[in-house]
Amino acid sequence: MDLQMIAYLAELGKLHFSNEEMEEMAVQMTNIIEIMDTVKEIDITYDAEADNKNVYLNDLRVDQKQDSLCTEKILQNAVNDQNCFVVPKVVE
């Protein structure tokens, strides 16, 4: 796997790597993909219909109003102020 592909996958995953980390990751991912390539040896096709035949979309719970978590508890793990999440200013 080349550095360009690593950079593309990192961008998709919202991850930063230093140049040195990119080089190391390229070697490791090349070895990992070699194992993953074994799935190409077998000639089979996924049957989506077979997988979904037992899914009953009408088997849903009743749409009822229920108690939810209180605002204080939801915000306890985040930077917050006046019952809002606080994020850096990104609009000038």
Partner: peptide
């Protein structure tokens, strides 16, 4: 981080059928 990269690779356009689709068939 390695797993995120591998997952993104398996789901990427051009690789999806060859990897993720084949894994589901398996």
């Amino acid at each position: 981080k390695r797993r995120i990269l591998l997952g993104n690779y398996a789901l990427s356009s051009g690789y999806y059928d060859a990897y993720y689709g084949k894994a589901l068939a398996l």
